[in-house]
Amino acid sequence: MIEWSSFLVVTLGALAGGCGVVVLFSLGVRFAGPETDGSRRGLGIACFTVCALVVAVGVCLVIPYFAPFFARL
């Protein structure tokens, strides 16, 4: 009755996406956020950048105009 396989895929996708973004942003905050010593600032900024890229992918998913590009990739 219900497509459990696609439900599972959605659950895993949401887990990967949601937790991935939070892990990256948290690491960014940890290394380059307020109250840091600044020793690993570059690493933090790298984390923020990757996180921004992931969010950008999300934006592209929302905008249908970009959908064909993703289909090709």
Binding site: S6, F7, V9, V10, T11, A14, L15, G17, G58, L61
Partner: peptide
């Protein structure tokens, strides 16, 4: 993440 996954992965 859940909304995007649900709309693009089939549920």
């Amino acid at each position: 993440a859940t909304i995007l996954a649900s709309t693009h992965l089939g549920f």
